[in-house]
């Protein structure tokens, strides 16, 4: 049991590490775009470039800088919310928001494998009173596994719905799935995590279905 908990803790740390790596990589890209765009405007002024479409070209660059500052801000907001999910073990949360921030932080990682992450969230889904950090950890492992197994140019749909006092999260791969070894996150560990949330996991063809009660019993 001690060993199982230790493995789980290590996997949670690995999960946080992965999220931080994806986040910093993305932020670095946005900062690079902002820096090059500002640098280009500086060059146009310093090197006396005569643009065909002068204030228009400057405005376009300024717009791109503003847009990337906005994207950077969004990502910081997601990371901040993600960090606070661990403040207390049980809290009231909106499952769509919780998954949205996870998806935002993993989009880059999926895009690099040419896989698009798509949300199909039920609107007005009831709030949950459970462990949001543990739920993100669980969903992350299924997303990571599917991303590793899916062929390039595939889609991965994350769907939420409510049914009989539970929230159901469906992870639906759309594309060819390759067989690879399932690393450290064994069925036993998945079971351990989902039991802590009071829910269960089932497989419907290639679709993973996670059902978690709104409040753990």
């Amino acid at each position: 049991m001690e060993n199982k908990n230790e493995v789980l803790r290590l996997l949670q740390l690995r999960f946080i590490g992965k999220i931080l790596a994806a986040f910093t990589h993305e932020i670095k890209n946005y900062i690079s775009i902002i820096k090059e765009s500002a640098g280009l405007m500086g060059d146009m002024i310093k090197l006396g470039k005569k643009s065909r479409n002068e204030p228009g070209e400057y405005l376009e660059i300024i717009h791109s800088i503003e847009e990337h500052i906005e994207k950077t801000n969004d990502l910081f907001r997601y990371l901040n919310r993600f960090s606070h999910r661990m403040d207390t073990e049980i809290s009231s949360f909106n499952v769509n928001e919780t998954l949205e921030e996870l998806i935002a932080l993993l989009t880059r990682f999926a895009n690099q494998r040419k896989i698009s992450l798509e949300k199909e969230f039920q609107k007005d889904i009831p709030s949950m009173n459970n462990n949001p950090a543990m739920l993100q950890f669980l969903v992350f492992h299924f997303l990571e596994e599917k991303i590793a197994r899916l062929d390039k140019n595939s889609r991965l749909i994350i769907k939420t719905e409510s049914a009989n006092g539970s929230t159901v999260i469906r992870i639906i791969p759309k594309g060819n799935l390759l067989d690879i070894d399932k690393e450290n996150f064994t069925y036993e560990l998945q079971d351990n995590v989902v039991r802590q949330l009071g829910g269960n996991i089932s497989l419907e063809k290639e679709e993973t279905v996670i059902s978690v009660p709104l409040t753990p019993s």
Binding site: I33, E36, S37, G39, D43, H68
Partner: peptide, 16 residues
């Protein structure tokens, strides 16, 4: 793969 990064950097190099 960052289109805007590449375009801005390309223009800066062309100016040089």
């Amino acid at each position: 793969d960052e289109v805007e990064f590449v375009l801005a950097l390309a223009e800066r190099l062309q100016l040089r």
